[in-house]
Structures are given as C-alpha cells and as structure tokens.
Simulated assay, not measured.
Amino acid sequence: MILRSAPIARALTICLPRASRSFLTGSSTRSNQNRTFDPIRTPNDLHTLTLLSAADNRPLITFWSASWCSTCQAVKPLVTSLIEDEKVGQAEGGLGFAVVELDSPMIGDLGVKYMITSMPTLLAFSRQEAQMETKLIKPNEMKNKEFLREWLLSEAKRGGRAGGSGGSLLGSLFGGQH
C-alpha cells in the first residue's frame, strides 16, 4: 500500500512508532519479516499498531508487562529472541510485536478493556480483534521455549485473517482467504 496523499502520510509519520515508518515508503508488496515496535504507552499507540497490523495482514503480538514485574523481565527476553533472532513466524507471513507498558501513566484502563488479570500476559491481535481464546497468562507456559514457539507459530499462521471474533464471513463475501 502506497500513500499518495502527503497530508495523510505526514500525519501517519508523526503518530506511528519509528519501526513502522518504513510502511509509508515501502513497496506495495507485503514483506513477511517480523517487526518489533516501540513500547505501547497509550491506548492510541495500541490502536495505531492494530490498524497497521490489520492493513499489513500480520498478527500483532502484545506482551503486557510492568517495570516492577520480575517475571515479566524474565520472560520478555525469551519472547523477543524468538521473534527477532530466531524469526519465528516469518515463514508463515510474519508477526508484529510490541510490549504494552501497563505502568505507563498514560495507559488508562487498557488492561481492564482487554481483561489483563495477571502479568505477564501475551495477547495476539488479528484484524484489530483481540484473540482472547488464545491469550497466554501462565508464566510457566511462557518460560517453556518450545510451547512459546508453537504458540507464536499458531498465531502467525492465522495471518491476520479471520480472528476469533469473526471476519471470515466478510472475507468470504469479498474474495478473501480464510
């Protein structure tokens, strides 16, 4: 997707995290590389990244954390390594990844909205829909590298299509895959 309107492109450049700005100048073909975004500190940050991921037909993996959470600090490097270093999910179309900083003063009630009841939590978004049925909340599962790899692969295979709350009917009506 190439944005042809300069005012729209400028507006998106201002509000998108640094890692996603390449979206504005990229070619019209989708890159299946995994993308790591700046931390989410406001509800608008999450909204922007879910929009970007939906437009890119790429699931967004969110890691809900707080600076004081020692378990979060132990799990985050494992998740990051699988996505960035081992590139888990790239062959399936790629993943977006961002940490949601729940202790950010501007985060508001975002944790309540997505029923984040423990930290860390891994929650995938597909077509802007939170995939509540696959949310991970058990630290022992997140610390198990093979379990985590399989979860990430499963979310990547979803490919941003037909999330748990629907989407397949419209995709079928308009020729989309599901």
Rank of each mutant, 00 (worst) to 15 (best):
Q131R: 06
E92T: 10
K135W: 09
E86V: 02
E101V: 06
V88W: 10
Y114E: 02
I83C: 05
P120S: 05
P139H: 04
E101P: 04
S154D: 09
A74D: 06
K135H: 05
A74W: 04
A156N: 04
E155Y: 00
G108D: 06
S65F: 04
A124Q: 00
A124T: 03
T71L: 13
G108T: 03
S67W: 09
A156D: 02
F125I: 02
E141M: 14
D85F: 10
I107Q: 03
K138Y: 05
Q128D: 06
K135D: 00
L123A: 07
A162H: 15
R161P: 07
G108R: 01
A130R: 01
S165N: 11
R161V: 06
I137C: 10
A130L: 01
I137R: 08
T117N: 11
T62E: 00
A156P: 00
T80G: 05
F97P: 04
Q73G: 10
V99I: 09
I61S: 10
P105N: 09
S165D: 11
S118Y: 07
K87Y: 06
G164E: 13
A66L: 03
A55I: 02
I61V: 06
L82K: 09
K135F: 01
A130D: 00
K76W: 11
D85V: 06
S154N: 15
L52P: 04
K157D: 12
I137P: 02
E84P: 00
P105A: 05
Q73T: 15
